[in-house]
Design a protein around this nucleic acid. Structure first.
Lengths: 123, 123
DNA sequence: AAAACGAGGTTACAGGTGTAAACTATATAT
DNA sequence: ATATATAGTTTACACCTGTAACCTCGTTTT
């Protein structure tokens, strides 16, 4: 039950469906992704790849396979977040925020408060 | 001088060098990336690709080409950030933070203050 | 029953990415 | 001047990713 690395952007969307409704049948995944623009084939490929990567597992049911996420949603998000922060902000939440604050409409005072809280948060 | 899309993770590291010291010669880029583990060849490839993508431009100098970033650092970071937020947190800074706060040592009260500021920031 | 549809499996194929070697021309060190 | 290193250019190559098609069984619809 581990952190499976290298989940692509498209695969992530499939995972989201299963976090939302674990045990979905392929047809349900399909309808959940109806407005993705993907063909049924594509969706099956993504599901297959996720399974091969160990990010999904299946159980047989009378109606076909039921698909379950094998990775935790919050954990996966945190992993992605860490990777993102490392990549773009040198691992610093503070740096992320000082950038975000730049095009926000927080007052200077508010911005300062925010930064203090963030510093506290980051140890 | 616009937002060039699709800068890869490796290319990003080269860009960082040039944001830090615009006008670097290839050799300087090389030394700046000494502990990346990349061969000189690899570095040249990355520089080439960035140039082809329009993310760098060059000026001739007596010592060889000088390389300059053609994209703004803060802007690029913000673009990446937006993409990340869309991908992972449904575009919501609030959701990102409610996740980050989970394994931080902020008190409930502080967490609440933080969230308020973030809400204000996001409109 | 014949046609259409869905599930599962296999195969495909182009473009991006990480990672480099090879070749050439020039500059530098010995 | 000769060997070496550097810069610039071209070529390579495997893996990942987006995006499917095709084939084969069943199941459902007409």
């Amino acid at each position: 039950m581990e952190s499976v690395k290298n989940i692509s952007e498209s695969e992530w969307k499939v995972l989201e469906v299963l976090w939302e409704k674990p045990g979905s049948l392929i047809g349900e995944i399909r309808t959940a992704l109806a407005d993705s623009g993907w063909s049924y084939s594509t969706i099956k490929t993504l599901v297959l790849r996720l399974t091969q990567k160990g990010a999904l597992y299946t159980k047989e049911s009378p109606h076909g396979k039921m698909y379950y996420p094998a990775v935790d949603e919050d954990k996966s998000r945190r992993d992605e977040t860490k990777h993102f922060l490392d990549r773009i902000y040198n691992g610093s939440v503070r740096m992320l925020f000082s950038n975000l604050v730049k095009d926000s409409k927080l007052s200077d005072k508010e911005a300062e408060e925010l930064m203090e809280l963030i510093d506290k948060m980051e140890d």
